[in-house]
């Protein structure tokens, strides 16, 4: 619980800084330019991390992923879970990234009072994870309406589908609520499952509290307190166009509610924090050795990339060197030799 407290405290501290910064010190301009810095750190940091990983040697292909590997013809291969082709790997990776297939296999192991081990159905992590990630992705996508001018048709179309429900003359975005449901479930899981709580550190709680804060401030702004959306978009378009002048002008011209600055600064924090954190699993998943390599060990020879160059003297070379002496004492030769002592290609 101490770790959760520290993480929650950090998020609250950011909110306090924003409150003092925008309401007391009137530093709106700083918080308006912060997204540009955050975005640069996010993109450069993300690429740096991945390039760093790219330098690591790739291990051997792992044949023991769940599923029957390709074997004799009468044994049915599991072509997705243990693929031997590139196509199978692509399908496995796609299902992993889009539907979190590995999490779906999650089960709960418990020892009963009689001392027997039992395995139980456990899909909550998968379900909340899926809700959270998809909700977050579609919510971010929807935000393109604030970063594009004119708003493209596909963004409008998605907004129409996402906001198909109306409550009291107001469009309700379902993905926002799905995101909140997912992240709340993930927080509850970490707090209430004793085994998960035991292994949870500050860096496990911080991102989920941060995203929870982003979702709550965003929905607060949209459904409860309301902000001047035109002013918000003017700032957002200044950010999108790298137009610091436009950001400063919008910050000076409009008095945007502190809720917006809460929301924006939490997002900036997430972007800055992202490359240094566990959130890099977004790129890491593509580099999972059990997910991204075909099990073709029995068909293709894979040479260990970090094998040292070992000097060997093969029998062919040995025979070439000593063939005259061998012939003289009547030893059998595997190769024929011409008059100059050159080894001729093997016959059969």
């Amino acid at each position: 619980m101490k770790n959760a407290g520290i993480a929650a405290g950090l998020v609250l501290a950011i909110l306090a800084i924003v409150f003092v910064g925008t309401e007391v010190l009137n530093l709106d301009a700083f918080f308006g330019i912060l997204p540009l810095i955050a975005m640069a750190i996010f993109i450069i940091g993300f690429i740096y991390r991945v390039l760093n990983w790219a330098k690591s040697p790739v291990p051997f292909r792992i044949p023991t992923t769940a599923g029957q590997q390709k074997s004799l013809d009468f044994i049915k291969q599991n072509k997705i879970d243990n693929p031997s082709t590139k196509g199978g790997v692509i399908v496995r990776m796609f299902l992993e990234v889009v539907f979190f297939r590995s999490l779906f296999r999650n089960s709960k192991a418990e020892v009963t009072d009689e001392g027997n081990i039992t395995y139980q159905w456990e899909k909550w992590l998968w379900l909340f994870g899926l809700c959270f990630h998809w909700g977050f992705f579609l919510t971010v996508f929807r935000h393109l309406r604030l970063f594009t001018d004119p708003v493209p048709g596909f963004v409008k179309a998605w907004e129409m589908i996402d906001g198909a429900f109306w409550v009291d003359l107001q469009q309700i975005y379902l993905t926002g609520f799905i995101l909140l449901l997912g992240i709340t479930g993930l927080i509850a899981r970490r707090l209430y499952m004793d085994k998960v709580r035991y292994v949870s550190l500050v860096q496990d709680f911080f991102p989920i509290f941060l995203i929870f804060g982003i979702a709550v401030t965003g929905m607060f702004m949209r459904y409860l307190t309301h902000v001047d959306i035109t002013a918000v978009k003017a700032v957002a378009m200044g950010i999108a166009g790298f137009n610091i002048g436009a950001i400063l002008e919008a910050c000076a011209m409009y008095d945007i509610s502190v809720n917006f600055w809460f929301h924006l600064t939490l997002v900036c924090t997430l972007l800055i924090y992202f490359p240094t954190s566990k959130l890099m699993h977004a790129a890491g998943i593509f580099m999972s050795p059990t997910r991204n390599m075909a099990n073709n060990n029995r068909m293709v020879r894979h040479i260990n990339p970090w094998n040292p160059d070992v000097e060997v003297h093969s029998y062919q070379e040995y025979e070439h060197e000593f063939h005259q002496k061998m012939k003289a004492v009547g030893l059998p030769l595997d190769w024929d030799y011409d008059e100059e002592g050159n080894q001729l290609p093997k016959k059969n």
């Binding site: 975005m39 393109l144 970063f147 594009t148 001018d149 004119p150 999108a240 166009g241 137009n243």
Partner: peptide, 13 residues
């Protein structure tokens, strides 16, 4: 958002 704002005809103000 960044590159689309440069290809878009509107200036976003």
């Amino acid at each position: 958002p960044f590159w689309s704002s440069f290809v878009s005809p509107a200036n976003g103000a």
